Amino acid sequence: MIRVGVIGASFARDAYLPALAHIPGAEAVALASNRIDSARKAAEPHGIPFVTDDWAEMIATQNLDLVCIATPTDTHLPMTLAALDAGAHVLCEKPTAMNADEARQMLDRAKAKGRLHMIDHEMRFNPNRSRVAEMIAHGDLGQIRHANIANISATWGDPASRPKGDWWSDASRGGGRLGANGSHQVDMLRWWLGEPTSVVGQALTFVPDRIDKKTGEAWTATADDLSYFTLEMASGALAQVFMSGVAANTIGNDTQVFGSKGTITLSNSDERLYFAKAGQGFEEITVADPKADLPGLNKGIWNVSVLSALQELTAAIAGKRELERGATFVDGLRNQMVLDAVIASTSSRRWEDLDMNAAV
């Protein structure tokens, strides 16, 4: 039996714990959260015996095979190192860390301890996005020339939309759209198109002056609520990503990939995948996820795809093999290098070159 401990109650409740219930041979035996009430509420429906508000105690005492980390970004490094030192394999949420230096420490420790390591970029296990990867690899689109991704929402636009103390709005804790959504986009583009060689962009705070809806207290947000960047890929392709949480209306996430032989479009709003050969009309080629209707799984591609990610990770642990799919800490480090370069570009207002070989 693979003994699993989870740190962080929110995503555990929504995704990790429902997914683990569908994996024979793996069992959630411990859960830690800063708020003990939240931990108990998440653990109770799954009969988890050990619940605590002290993650270090959980790691030190519970003899865990796998630790899943779903907490604010500034906690990823110490939690990951502690779990690895205790002999556990690690699944860590995105963004990987506060910066590339921390991400490298996580990777180096995992290698030194001989433990499996995965970043929860669960979209690598989504059937539609997997089909895009396959079509690009098989040459169905020809030479990829450019890709556009837009993620537009109104969720952060109202100054009262975020409570005071919200870590997602705090740059010192690793919050912001760039890490929350941009890390997923970077991972997907690297998966589809290969490594980037240079990036230019900005991470900006459009609505810094905020007010707590419950208390009326004014506070200042420091994390980016709008970010954009352009990646120049080693293949010669250009990839543009624009993410805003401060629009007046939510449009959602739209992805377009343009090649010399065809074009692909995919929208998160309806999860329909379309392909058009050069000079022809678009035809739907959507791939349904057979796991979407499993009992107990919450709706949404993120929650469903986590099951496939955990199935691969736990199978690798049980089989004492390397991961065959998914983003590892190597991917996490390279991803973080891109995010760091976007931050640098915000200040320099110019292209920042990337050396992905430095992550090996």
Rank of each mutant, 00 (worst) to 15 (best):
A39R: 03
A39N: 11
R40F: 05
K41G: 02
A42R: 02
A43Q: 09
E44T: 14
E44I: 08
E44K: 12
E44H: 07
P45G: 11
P45F: 09
P45V: 09
P45K: 09
H46D: 03
H46T: 04
I48H: 08
I48P: 04
P49T: 09
P49M: 09
F50M: 12
V51N: 06
V51R: 04
V51C: 05
V51T: 12
T52R: 01
T52H: 02
T52V: 09
D53I: 04
D53S: 13
D54T: 09
D54G: 03
A56W: 01
A56N: 10
E57Q: 13
E57N: 02
M58Q: 06
M58D: 03
M58K: 00
I59Y: 03
A60V: 03
A60M: 01
A60T: 08
A60R: 13
T61G: 00
T61R: 12
T61A: 10
T61Y: 00
Q62T: 01
N63S: 13
N63Y: 00
N63V: 00
L64M: 10
L64W: 05
D65E: 11
D65T: 11
D65N: 14
L66S: 06
V67D: 05
V67E: 02
C68L: 15
C68W: 00
T71N: 10
T71D: 05
T71C: 12
P72T: 08
P72Y: 04
T73G: 03
T73H: 01
D74Y: 14
H76R: 08
H76D: 07
L77I: 04
P78F: 05
P78H: 10
M79V: 11
T80A: 11
A83L: 05
L84N: 09
L84H: 07
D85S: 14
D85H: 09
A86D: 04
A86E: 03
A86T: 09
G87S: 10
A88C: 08
A88S: 15
H89Y: 07
H89D: 15
H89R: 03
V90K: 00
L91W: 08
L91G: 09
C92L: 12
E93P: 00
E93Q: 08
E93N: 13
K94V: 11
K94G: 07
N99H: 14
N99V: 04
E102P: 00
A103P: 08
R104G: 01
R104E: 14
R104Y: 10
Q105L: 15
Q105D: 11
Q105E: 14
Q105P: 01
M106A: 11
M106T: 11
D108I: 12
D108A: 15
D108W: 06
R109K: 15
R109I: 05
R109L: 13
A110E: 04
A110M: 11
K111D: 13
A112S: 15
A112G: 12
A112K: 12
G114K: 08
G114M: 10
R115E: 02
R115C: 13
R115D: 06
L116E: 10
H117P: 00
M118W: 03
I119R: 04
I119L: 13
D120S: 15
H121I: 14
H121Y: 15
E122R: 08
E122Q: 14
E122G: 01
E122P: 00
